[in-house]
Amino acid sequence: MADIRVQSEPFDYGQECAAFAQAHSDNGAIVTFCGIVRGEDGLQAMEIEHYPGMTERALHRIAAEAAARWSLGGALILHRHGHLTPEEPIMMVATAARHRADAFAAADFMMDYLKSRAPFWKKERRASGESWVAAREVDEQALSRW
């Protein structure tokens, strides 16, 4: 049921939202979220590494778990890898449901899980050099909400 896409190419968030809403127009509620590269602290670029094969498997599993917990008409997870620059979209999720509570909860759940359970790693480049982004304890703790 879920549309899972892992790609290096940029995507148009507005177009993806419109296409998702169109494809799920028989649902009463659509929730979408987009993560964007923050250009703070002099960030010049970001490299996202992932584990091909396991990534898609993990994202499908997260979407399936969301569909098991809430009544969904559809879900999309799109995540980029490779080279990104500030203000570019990194990833998006979209959910469709009969009512908004299910769509919001499922989108929130999928975001929490893909932050620390999908095999992506971010490396940031600044004038001072490159460094891997450290996992945040708060992201791990967020999973206990569910």
């Binding site: 932050k115 359970r117 992506f120 790693w121 971010k122 996992a135």
Partner: peptide, 24 residues
């Protein structure tokens, strides 16, 4: 599939090591 460090690996074909994940 994510596993614990004390997990058995008998029959495994591919074992991956990496830091905590930072997607999203």
């Amino acid at each position: 599939d994510l596993a614990d460090l004390d997990a058995p690996i008998t029959g495994a074909r591919e074992i991956a090591f990496f830091p905590p994940m930072t997607g999203g």
